[in-house]
Nucleic acid binder design. Sequence first.
DNA 1: AGCCTCAGTCAACACCTGTAGAATGACCCG
DNA 2: CGGGTCATTCTACAGGTGTTGACTGAGGCT
Lengths: 186, 186
Amino acid sequence: MSDSSRAQQRRDTQARILAEARTLFAERGYERTTIRAVAEQATVDPGLVMHYYGSKERLFVQATQDHSSPLPGGSADQVAEQLLDRLHQSLTDEPTASLALLRSMLTHPEAAREILNSARDHKDRISAAIPDDQADLRAALLSATLIGVVLGRHLVQLDHLADADPEQIIDILRPCVRSLTAADRP
Amino acid sequence: MSDSSRAQQRRDTQARILAEARTLFAERGYERTTIRAVAEQATVDPGLVMHYYGSKERLFVQATQDHSSPLPGGSADQVAEQLLDRLHQSLTDEPTASLALLRSMLTHPEAAREILNSARDHKDRISAAIPDDQADLRAALLSATLIGVVLGRHLVQLDHLADADPEQIIDILRPCVRSLTAADRP
DNA sequence: AGCCTCAGTCAACACCTGTAGAATGACCCG
DNA sequence: CGGGTCATTCTACAGGTGTTGACTGAGGCT
């Protein structure tokens, strides 16, 4: 009854559309990605995309929904290491949904809101672990820095950063992150 | 002969168009900025914008042309301090042309190319000052970091970063930058 | 004064976009 | 096997975009 080939195929095409949308949003950003292009990539009619997702906006929201990893917490040392771990992961495999969000954040309000919220949550957890009166600012700088690195690697593709070994990047960045988390106190 | 009121008024309107274009490109990015909007802000007919600048593309190039500050150089210590100085400046007054470029870099190829070139020049000068075999990677990370901070402050407007005192930001960032320039060698 | 240059405007074009709704046709159930 | 459900497509529209070229009228030169 439930898993008739009809329902199955429906889920398949829906997933295919969503995957292609993710890719295109990540490659071109919100504005330059057209429903028609998504449909074409998914070998499907544009109308079907609308039928399933209602609007380009809703498609974007669904496509960029990320089952995000757990928020950091613990001591300053621990937080620093968790952040580096997570960065390592973002550097190794390309998190398409996040990249789509990042690429669109400067031109699409919805993406900006999403990034801002995500950054806020992160920041709160980080600043709680930092024993400093400027904890909030430090946490914000940490977010900005990490965003900058991921951006530079996957989207801007800065020379020598785009194709560098993640391990090396992490090693170089460790003192930097530790100084921001104040894990190394003066 | 040369400075007839005709020629003068022409230069005025050209400058006004360019200024409004800069602002709009910085606020909305390339795609969301329309020639019509620029014209309206400059209280001018859209056709005139085309007449003076030929195309939206050329208008963008002109608007984002930045008489950029001198490239860094010297010892690792000196480079670190120069970068912090320049960052301080970017944090204090909003460099509209650069912000326009930054906001558009993720969606507009021309902006991306420009940023990439600029970053490349920067990186070369920086990496030359760093006595390390990973100098290139370190320089790239430095660029990524600084881009991230400026982005986070002016465009994403991260909490606690958007309205922080530049001095404090610089102070917090100094150890971070010095660790990247390897000014503090192990 | 008279002409002509030129800053600036107007109307229109061709195109592309998101979106809506009717039409189609294959598949499943009774 | 017949009928209806439902995934999918087709056609169309309304608005916005960059861009064009003809037009206008005030300013300055002779």
